[in-house]
Structures are given as C-alpha cells and as structure tokens.
Nucleic acid binder design. Structure first.
Lengths: 350, 350
DNA sequence: CTTAGCACTCAAAGAATGAGAGTGCTAAAT
DNA sequence: ATTTAGCACTCTCATTCTTTGAGTGCTAAG
C-alpha cells in the first residue's frame, strides 16, 4: 500500500497517455509500453492502489483510469521531465517578444501574452498594472476649437489620453498655467501614490484658479483612475473552444466575467516561480476541468505582475511550463535592467 | 395559386410566431389567432401554397412551417409594422449615445455600437474608418531618455500614438525642427490623402536632414498606415452564444475572422437606408441561420461609415430596425452639423 | 510478488416501440 | 368556387430494451 518506483512510472505513463489521447487509460495499453515490463494484471493492481491513494480515478467501473488533480500535481512536481529549450527555440521566442518593437514595458508584456497564446493554444492573461510605474509626462494639447486632449505617459510606457470639451477656448497663458501646474504636481509621482486625496487637492487648487476648467479637471481625475486600476490583458480566449473537455457554455461565461479574475485572487503575486491551479467544479466561476498556470515577473526584487495560461486540465505541462518560465524570466531581466529614468536598454540577448 | 390578403396575413403570423417561439408553426395555432377567421384546413391550404411559392418551408413532413429567406424578405419589406419610438425611448437612446461624454465622432460611434449591442442582444459592428477626417494635430513628445512618443489626432477625434526609441537624445532645436516639419506637412491633410507617396516624400526629406531619425520616421509611417486602414469595432459578440439556432463553433469561427467582414464587402456603404443580409449555408464565412442588418451614416451627403447588427435570422426585426435607423440618423445629424474645424456642436436634442 | 483466467459491470450504440403533432386529401357544406 | 370537417398517413422525439465490448477485480496457480 505504499508508493514505489514502478507505481510512479505507471502514474506518469497514465498522465502522459491521457494528456495525449483524452481517453481513459486501461491496464493493457500501459502494460504494452516499452518501459513497463510487467503484465496487465500487475498494472491493474498498481492502478487500484494509485486510485486508493487518490492519484487516479475511474469515470465508471468498466472504463480505464484518468488522473485526479492530486495525480496531476504529483506529476507536475515530481514526475514530468520538461525539455530544456534549444538555442533556436529561444531565438524564436525572443523574436516573438520583440516584434512590433518591444520598446516599452507594456508592449513587452503584450507581446509575451500574444506569443504565449499562440504557442500554447490556450487563453493567456497578463496583468500589467502600472502601479509601480511613475508618471513621466503630462501634456494638455489643444486640438480643434474648445477641444483639449490630456495625455498621460508613464515610465512603463502606458499612454493614456482623453479628449475634453470646454465651454470656451483657453488663452495661451491659461493653457500654460494649467499644463505647468499639472506637470509640476504629477510628473515623477508613482502611480500607486495617485490617491483620491491627492487628486482632490490638485483639482480644488485648479478649480480655485479657474472655475470653468471643470471638464479638464474631471478628465485628469478619470485618467488617474484608469491608470491605477489593475488592467488585465487577455489573448487567445477562443483557443479554449477547441478543447472537447471544456464546456462551451462555461467558456462563454468565463469570457464574460474574465475581468473578475484578478479580484478573485487568481493572479496573486506574492509567490515566485510557477504555480498551477486546478478548476474544480466547486468553484462556480472557473471553467470546470480547466487549469491555470501562473507565473510572476519581477522588477528588481519586487513582483510587479503576473502571466497566466488557462487551458484544459489535460494539458501538456511539460511543454507549456518552460515557455512560461522563459518569458517570465526574460521580462524580469529586461525590465529590471532599466535605467533610472526607466527606458529599456538594448535587447542584448546573451 | 396567387397571393392574396389572407395569405399575406398568414405569412406575417407565421413569421411573428416563429420569431417569438423558435418552434415551427402549425396550422392550428394560426387558425386560432384572433385576426384569422378561417379554419385550420383553410390555413393548411394557404400554407401549402406559400410553400410552393417559396415563402415557407417544412423542416420535415410532420412539422409546422418556418419562413424561408424569401419569406423573411417579404415580411421585412412589406408586412411588418415597426412601432415608432416613443418620446421616452428616444431620450433613453440619446442618453446611451452621449454617455461617457460623446464628444468626438469616434466616441459617438463607439457609444452607438455598445448601445445597439445592449439593446438588441446581438453582435454589432461599426466601421469608423477616419478616411474622411483631417489630421488636426501632430506632436512629438520626449518622454524618458531617448524615447519619443508621436501623437496623431484627427478631426474625428481618433488619437493614435506610438513610442519610438532613438539611438541618442535630440537637442531642442532638432526636436523643434522635426516637430515643426511634421506639423507643417501633415496638419490639415485629409486622411484619405495620406498616400505612401506623400509619406515617402516626407520621410526622405527628414532623412536628408538627419539620418538617424529613422525610428521616428518609421513610426510616423506606421501611424499613417494605421490611420488609413479601415478600423472595425465589435461589441456584444458574446450575445450570439445565447441563441440556440446559431452553431457555437460557427460563432467562434466568425469571431476569429471578424476583421475580414469589411473586406468581404458586407459593410458596403454605397446604399442608403437599411439592408438586411441573410447568412446562407453556402457562404462558408458567415454564420449559418444568421442575418445582418446594415445601415449607413453620412456626413453631409457622403456615406462615411456603417453600422451592422448581426443576430439570428429569427430576429425581431420590427423591434430592432427602428433602433438602428434612429442611431444612424442621429449620428448623421450630429457629425454633419460639425463646424469647419470639426468639433461637434452642443448636442441640442430637439 | 507476479500472472493467467474468468466472471462481472457498465457505458455506448443500435433496434424496437409508442405517442403526438401536423400534414394532405377527399367529400360534403356553404 | 371556397371553405370546412374528417381521417388516414408520416415522421420526429422520447423511451425502453438489447447487444457489444472494453476494462475491471478477484482467485488460484506459478
């Protein structure tokens, strides 16, 4: 009734086979594998034990076995052997990361998200909350009569804008004053420090100067709200539809509510390395039979964002995990390398 | 064997009933309607004729009848009686159109798209190609070391930006020259006039001035490309999943390829008024059993964009069409009202 | 501890059955 | 010339029963 080498080998074989075929695995197929040198009956006994121990289960009495969540966990932590990425493969991944000019932090993450969706054929979510960025530029640009565009740029490369219409045109001095005031009070401020309190001090000062700036003031306020809120980027949701073992309706439901993912705590950034979460039926929000592989990337020593791959539980973890690890590491390297004023250095691949 | 009043009434009743219930309609239900004063047998005879004429069909011998595409067409063109919108309803639609400050042309269209998706519970596509807009502002903004953001604003309110990294920092004079040169040569130009030729003249002039501006020049080039290309906005695609008679896989496929919609000529803007297209099985690209209601909006006398509602063929046309008509008309009114420098006037509802 | 053999279980696929909705046709009524 | 009642007929849908086959657990021998 205890684990041994052979039982582990059988468990690994079941997971491998099931991941590949999607069919419950019987004792015969396992016995016929080259690295298993015992009869089907023996395999049967071992599988019965593995079931008792909670690593396997049977959909019904006369079917083969499939891995349980516990089985997947053991497989991922101990049994699988992820191939290390070849030189060519790394080069290919780098290409995907830097395409469309991966200049800013934000673009980098976007590219990684897209690339992962493409590579894994799963849905990928990334969170590039600029909460650790600094506002590097505020501009107010008149464009057309009585229309003013407010522009906010962060060190991370997010560019937000908003058009506002005033009741009248500003004079040069007014515009300069307003623009200068904003620059002075916002540039250099960390996004995480953009409290409502700060904004209210700002706006009341400006309102005092000129009552009718209200729409601009309102605009600034909304932009700062925008910036602070945790922004999630999703790619490849549609890939999920190609998996037979995910319920289509559940996928649709998930897509509708995907923005709650962060709030629900799935993108916890308090850990390092890779974490795999399994979608159990209990959890009504997550897709049943799905799993999510989460990794964090860092700036210096601080975790600043997450990358998550959502796919069927029956996923080729050995193939997918190295990709996620590679991208997380690469992003970490690149954004940690930043100089004080937060540009990226040349992309010097080693 | 020819049409008469009663047959038309029966056809209309069949469409109404089928749209409401989704079930094939039998002679009995029709006969029991208050405005039909003949027996089921008579209805049966008429329905057989309507089938011979191609307006109805039977899924199988012992089922009721459902409308054919030809049946829907006749219904839409001649038989249905769309209710006119009440005063309150118009006010509600206006609210939806102007929420989040419907200040720019672009925002207006976005709001209309969102509102239509909400109201019709269908997928909605709008095309706000700014090809008839004018570039109203070009700016180059230094932000962080060696990073420059190019900003392009059109009279329609589109704001495009792109970050570029140079090999070195520009001096004040260089920046001013570059910025001035761009303003001088691009502001006031119609987007449709942004030919590759024009851009090449521009870029070669700039390259002549300073070789290493290349990334910026490239950025400008890409932005202009971006601007010229027909941009489609989709909302409410997920609504489609709630219709039993649309195939889920086909919906997914459609969502994947939705950007080809314009190219495929579904958003033809060469007509005025409303057009209804039906998704037949022949057309592999479109969702089977779907239909699309297209309307154009104008600026002055020129059609400048389209609004399309995509839903099941079994759609309450009488309810949906007035909404589309109202929004198209309203947008037309608002953007045609623009002053020369292309702001919108106050939204004076009448 | 391993294996061959065998009875047993159960899902999936097919075949048979019955109910019900709706039709087309005929002949009578208006 | 229409309209209607009546009736036999058709075909789907749901249900039930049967068969098939893969896979198991257990037992007893190696």
């Amino acid at each position: 009734m205890r684990m041994n080498e052979r039982k582990l080998k059988i468990l690994a074989a079941v997971v491998d086979f099931y991941v590949r075929t999607g069919e419950p695995v019987g004792s015969k197929v396992i016995a016929s594998l080259p690295n298993i040198n015992v009869s089907a009956a023996t395999v049967r006994n071992d599988m019965a034990m593995l079931e008792k121990l909670g690593y396997l289960e049977q959909p019904h009495t006369s079917a083969g076995r499939i891995p349980t969540i516990k089985g997947y966990q053991l497989y991922i932590e101990e049994l699988m052997t992820p191939p290390s990425l070849s030189q060519e493969e790394r080069a290919r991944l780098d290409d995907m990361l830097f395409c469309y000019g991966g200049i800013t932090e934000e673009l980098l993450i976007q590219n990684a998200t897209t690339a992962l969706a493409e590579l894994t054929q799963c849905a990928v979510v990334s969170d590039f909350s600029p909460k650790f960025s600094v506002i590097s530029k505020v501009e107010v640009i008149p464009t057309g009569r009585r229309i003013y565009v407010i522009l906010l740029i962060t060190s991370g490369g997010s560019i937000k804008n908003k058009a506002c219409r005033l009741e009248f045109d500003l004079t040069h001095e007014q515009l300069n004053w307003f623009s200068g005031y904003l620059s002075e009070h916002l540039e250099g401020i960390s996004v995480s420090d953009l409290s409502d309190e700060l904004m209210e001090n700002l706006t009341s000062a400006m309102s005092a100067y000129m009552m009718s700036l209200a729409p601009l003031v309102q605009g600034i306020f909304e932009l700062s709200r925008d910036l602070k809120q945790r922004a999630l980027l999703f790619k490849g949701e549609r890939n999920l539809f190609s998996y037979e073992d995910l319920d289509k309706m559940e996928i649709v439901k998930f897509i509708e509510r995907k923005d709650e993912l962060a709030l629900a705590g799935f993108l916890d950034d308090s850990f390092s390395g890779i974490r795999v979460l399994f979608g159990e039926d209990k959890n009504s929000f997550v897709i049943g039979n799905s799993s999510m592989i989460v990794s964090n990337y860092r700036k210096g020593k601080k975790n600043v964002g997450s990358l998550g791959v959502i796919g069927p539980m029956r996923l080729n973890y050995a193939k997918v995990i190295p990709y996620i690890e590679y991208f997380s590491q690469k992003i970490t390297d690149l954004i940690s390398e930043q100089t004080e004023d937060c540009n990226l250095h040349e992309e010097d691949e080693n």
